[in-house]
């Protein structure tokens, strides 16, 4: 029985890098997550994190170029729900973006960086890798076996 637990299910969606596709991405992720019985509250957090990641890709990796590709892959095991988002745009290091200081933001009229902070707050793991000249991947994962 134990060996079966390690089997991973997979699912994939490919869309163009346009903000109009954000809702399709959210629907795709929430359908996948709800299907395996993740509580709605957690699903809401996951889709917000995925939305933020994709918004970043559209803005920073593709710089609003509308024909880029965004591939969203879902992986889940008993312990973990993982979303991997792949793009072929310009590499950017989300991990290096510092947590926002709202007061400074307020003074400077800045709005970026909030998304990154949200992703880190809402998910258990946020990782980024860039394979130069090939693709970039953002990995978001949520542990499912937490006690609370």
């Amino acid at each position: 029985m134990k060996s079966k637990n390690h089997k991973l299910e997979e699912n994939e969606l490919t869309v163009k890098s346009r903000t109009e596709n954000l809702s399709a991405i959210r629907n795709f992720v929430s359908a996948g997550a709800l299907e395996i019985g993740i509580p709605l509250k957690i699903v809401e957090n996951i889709i917000l994190a995925v939305d933020e990641a994709c918004t970043n890709i559209i803005k920073h990796a593709y710089k609003y170029f509308p024909e880029g590709e965004i591939i969203v892959k879902l992986k889940f095991s008993r312990e973990k729900f993982t979303v991997i988002i792949i793009d072929h745009g310009v590499p950017f290091e989300p991990e290096t973006i510092p947590d926002p200081d709202l007061q400074t933001y307020y003074r400077q009229h800045r709005v970026g960086g909030l998304g990154m902070y949200l992703m880190k707050s809402l998910m258990d793991e946020v990782k980024y890798v860039s394979v130069p000249g090939k693709y970039n991947q953002v990995l978001l994962s949520k542990n499912l076996l937490t006690t609370h």
Partner: peptide, 16 residues
């Protein structure tokens, strides 16, 4: 980690 192997610190290789 937790009895399995987990990829960390990926350099120029995708998570998958």
């Amino acid at each position: 980690e937790n009895g399995g192997l987990k990829s960390v610190g990926n350099n120029s290789i995708g998570f998958l």
